[in-house]
Design a protein around this nucleic acid. Structure first.
Lengths: 340, 340
DNA sequence: TTTGTGTTTCAAAACGTTTTGAATCGGGTG
DNA sequence: CACCCGATTCAAAACGTTTTGAAACACAAA
């Protein structure tokens, strides 16, 4: 591996000058700079990141810790996010160190990575309410950025979609179509996104004096959506509309409605939230799904950029981003059926 | 952050002595060592890995590059492997840098990580025949270890199961039960494990003068297993036994047999290879599945240990491990039906 | 007292970079 | 000629560790 010293010796220059020439400092003669560049190229010089990091005091790596579920599966969305993230990080000469959390204590894995002086900061996802990881990292004064929020109006950098509005938008749409009996098939309420969706739903319903009589939480799979909807549709005074946590859950709900001999949107309306994952495309449903849409692939780049800025010393609160999901009207929603 | 120098000043010792005391060198007075340990503990000393790495010339990180399929899903098996790997690496003070390969050129992502002097070596998986990544890493003289092999009798460290034997064992079992028309529902033949399974199958069939008339490749999903088996079972002189690439594929084959009104194992026998993933448990099939079994969770630790040894200078060929899958007889195999 | 011996400690170099503060040079100005 | 100035280059320090070769010390043997 070529070093600055070798390039210097080759040209009769000091390492100082070589370093400055390569790093674009203005006080070096343009002719010298060209020669240095040439020689560096010829010798195949690559800066030794380790040495750079020792002197700058930063490691140039950020950590991310995966929480794996007991069934060893992980978030469906993880690979989508990971791909975007490594690409965005590479643009800032930064690498991603991945670890898996297998501990009971959610903070343990972060502590371990920190103690080894490996990473400059963290990317967190899937926060729970008052997340202990966040308390820990703030206490230790470690930079991090969150995909999501663990509370309203936090004081750390984050990128999140407005999950509260996701629900209120859906309820507003359905209520304006005349629906009164609206169900929520929600995701995991251990996470704030689930909690926010439920809170938004309850508030929107309350604002219109509607009773939130049908709420099912912790449904993430198609099968769970199917089962929940089937139960509800079998009752007297069944709901006429469903707000679904995901397009996958909506697929289950749709199947349940069909199995009950109900047609969409004549008898039952369905709104889902669409993370725009490649597996289940809302527009290919039959009928095409009305959705609140916030592509997950939009998240990694802002997320990474926020973190990089903060690592460079920017104020945490300058890097908060709350995006509103888009409401896209398609064929799965219609006016409430006249009389049941 | 406390440093060696600070500990030294605190105790009136040189950094040399402090360093040696903490690293367990024999030539330091036991009383001194105790004092140093105490002070280090009290000051919360953590060695600066970056500095350590600069002087030792090793980064203490290994890289792994994920190949993501066009549908953005990844290997079902990935999380299983990842968990075991980070745990095994942590035992050697080593961290995992993850990157995603989004290039047409499979070597590009490796080159990038290397040019940045980030990693000491690589863990590769899912090799193709004469894998270009392996050629590149060997040419560059970069340590690596492979999960799988890209050819027979390679000269690099690997951990692999004997995929050839997986097929021959299955065929032998079925042929000994009297089956003559044996089908193979194989996985992706772009990878060597798929190729080896097919080669083993053909060889075992040829060894018994049986015609390998039913071979389907590139089936990884339940649906694909179902479709392939349904096609075969609809033909005249349909196969009486199936060798399946995975338990997931076997589930599809089983369903196809049932849909054809065939019972298992009376009319159709099924053998599958079982990676022992938590999602599809062969023993819970009905009837319980006869399998060749090689738990994927067994792989990460030997894999990591091989790599660590090689990083420490061991000979590459001392760290090759070929394990033979276990044949487990259960209820899905039986004698060939008397007359069709 | 001197010499030898084993134990324990130390100063200094090294890793490759960035950064600080100073030196050198050529050329103009007084 | 003496001085100053801008442009360019340099030597040295620093980051925190490991490692080398030598020094210091205590104690026993000669």
């Amino acid at each position: 591996m070529a070093t600055l010293k070798q390039i210097g010796k080759e040209l009769g220059l000091s390492v100082t000058t070589v370093s400055r020439a390569l790093n674009g400092f203005p006080e070096v003669n343009e002719a010298t700079r060209v020669k240095v560049r040439e020689t560096a190229e010829r010798l195949g010089y690559r800066p030794n990141r380790i040495a750079q990091r020792l002197v700058t005091g930063r490691s140039g790596m950020v950590g991310m810790i995966l929480k794996i579920k007991p069934d060893m599966s992980a978030d469906q969305t993880f690979f989508q996010t990971l791909t975007g993230m490594t690409a965005a990080l590479a643009a800032h000469e930064t690498d991603l160190v991945l670890a898996v959390d297998q501990d009971a204590d959610p903070v343990q894995a972060y502590r371990k990575l920190l103690e080894r002086n490996i990473v400059d900061g963290f990317i967190l996802n899937a926060p729970v309410r008052d997340d202990p990881r966040i308390a820990y990292l703030k206490d230790q004064n470690i930079p991090f950025v969150l995909h999501g929020r663990d509370r309203d109006a936090p004081d750390y950098p984050f990128y999140d979609i407005d999950n509260h509005a996701v629900s209120t938008d859906a309820v507003d749409l359905l209520a304006n179509l005349g629906h009164r009996r609206i169900a929520l098939i929600n995701g995991e309420v251990q996470y704030t996104f689930g909690l926010d969706r439920e809170a938004g739903f309850r508030q929107a319903m309350a604002g219109r004096d509607l009773a939130p009589g049908w709420i099912v939480n912790d449904a993430t799979l198609e099968q769970q959506g199917y089962q929940a909807a089937l139960d509800m549709l079998s009752q007297a005074n069944a709901p006429t509309a469903f707000v679904c946590f995901s397009t996958l859950v909506a697929a289950g709900v749709m199947q349940a409605a069909r199995d009950k001999g109900l047609s969409i949107p004549k008898d039952v309306s369905i709104v889902a939230h669409d993370d725009a994952l490649p597996q289940t495309r809302a527009i290919e449903f039959n009928p095409a799904l009305t959705v609140t849409r916030a592509p997950l692939r939009d998240a990694p780049e802002p997320l990474v950029n926020h973190l990089i800025s903060v690592l460079r010393g920017a104020a945490a609160t300058d890097h908060q981003q709350l995006v509103r999901a888009e409401l896209i009207l398609r064929g799965s929603t219609g006016p409430v059926p006249s009389v049941p």
